[in-house]
């Protein structure tokens, strides 16, 4: 099949839609959880209004990170100047795969950051005196759960800018093989970040919750949180390795 610039555009626009469309789902849910818990907290503890409002806004901003990554990738796909036929079918597949990677990859991390922020708001309402310690822990937990979104962003950017051009005179079989392998790389890192992102978010949420109930055990809770989050992250790293292999070693 002869490649024309239309095919590249089809891939880029589809990728852009998938990226921000899927990425927005849990970003919205996560921010909503935080706002809901914030509102409940104000009901319970109207005096801590200011502190709760601050925690809620900062938590929501951090939970939006993955959604913003998805927006950046889809802007790059639309306006990044990819409508040239130079890269061949490899380029078309890579553009679609970048959208898939970032769109699906935003799922877990934003859900996790949302849960973490929600529990933090609940905790601040329970113990306004320790509000700053809880907010610090919330931000650390959200940053930990966003690491897998950053893996997805790295793979999406590599797919946009580092995929080699298709050499001339290849058989159809070889072209198909490499193109599908690029899409597989996007799926590997996209799906692979859902579990770790959501899991680390759960750890951070529980840590925030317990910090509000037992503020004296702060250092022990944080240590367990870091240890548990690091172990949960391992599967995201396996996915990253498989995605790199599919992009560069096939």
């Amino acid at each position: 099949m002869e490649l024309s610039v239309e095919y590249i555009r089809i891939a880029a626009y589809l990728g852009a839609g998938i990226s921000v469309g899927l990425g927005a789902i849990t970003t919205g849910i996560g921010s909503g959880i935080i706002a809901g818990e914030g509102a409940l907290g104000v009901m319970r503890q109207p005096k801590a209004n200011d502190q709760l409002f601050r925690t809620m806004l900062i938590g929501q901003a951090a939970a939006q990170t993955a959604g913003i990554f998805a927006l950046v990738i889809s802007m790059l796909l639309i306006y990044g100047g990819f409508d040239i036929t130079e890269g061949g079918w490899y380029r078309a597949a890579a553009l679609l795969a970048a959208g898939l990677a970032m769109g699906i990859g935003a799922f877990g991390p934003s859900l996790g950051a949302g849960y973490s922020g929600g529990e933090a708001c609940k905790s601040v309402a329970r113990m306004p005196k320790h509000g700053n310690a809880i907010m610090g822990n919330m931000l650390i937990g959200q940053a930990l759960s966003q690491t897998s979104a950053i893996f997805a962003l790295v793979v999406a950017l590599l797919l946009l800018y580092s995929v080699p051009n298709q050499p001339i005179g290849l058989s159809v079989g070889k072209i198909l093989l490499k193109s599908i392998s690029l899409i597989g790389a996007g799926m590997a890192i996209g799906l692979g970040t859902i579990g770790p992102g959501a899991g680390i978010g759960y750890v951070a949420g529980k840590a925030n919750d317990m910090m509000g109930k037992f503020p004296k055990e702060r250092s022990k809770i944080m240590r367990t949180m870091f240890l548990g989050a690091a172990v949960s992250e391992s599967t995201a790293i396996y996915s990253l390795v498989v995605a790199f292999l599919l992009i560069f070693a096939v």
Partner: peptide
């Protein structure tokens, strides 16, 4: 190759959530 990508992607879902639950 597509199977490899899907396999690692979906296979990472369960352990990630499960380990997070344990740690929480």
């Amino acid at each position: 190759l597509l199977g490899a990508g899907m396999c690692m992607g979906m296979g990472a879902l369960g352990p990630g959530v499960g380990e997070g639950f344990v740690a929480g």
